[in-house]
């Protein structure tokens, strides 16, 4: 499995990563070699094997419906890049 520059650019966009044009080729090379490594999985037939999402096969615990958190906006927004009137600011969102 080998990835071309166009595919790398597409993946980078999906992952919202700016990759310089000059670096695309080296990413393509590295990602392709990782995919080659990963392709070794195909050596084993896994037909009928149940996928394992979690090492410990436990069930989800449920929390009581209680409000346990209080307002900590000031603390949280002290580390924010840009806030005004309690809101996080971003370039205009277009719907």
């Amino acid at each position: 499995m080998s990835l071309g520059s166009a595919e790398v650019a597409k993946i980078a966009h999906l992952a919202r990563l700016a990759i310089g044009a000059a670096d695309i080729a080296s990413y393509a090379r590295n990602l392709s070699s990782i995919l080659e490594l990963v392709a070794q999985m195909n050596a084993v037939d896994t037909t009928g094997v149940e996928p394992l999402a979690h090492p410990l096969e436990m069930a989800q615990r449920l929390r009581p419906d209680e409000v346990s958190e209080s307002d900590r906006r000031e603390r949280f927004q002290a580390i924010a890049p840009s806030v005004e009137a309690g809101l996080y600011l971003v370039p205009q969102v277009i719907e």
Binding site: E84, G86, Y88, L89, V90, P91, Q92, V93
Partner: peptide, 10 residues
């Protein structure tokens, strides 16, 4: 209008 920005309330 926040100077042409959007405000996010979570």
């Amino acid at each position: 209008d926040f100077h042409g920005l959007s405000g996010i309330d979570l």
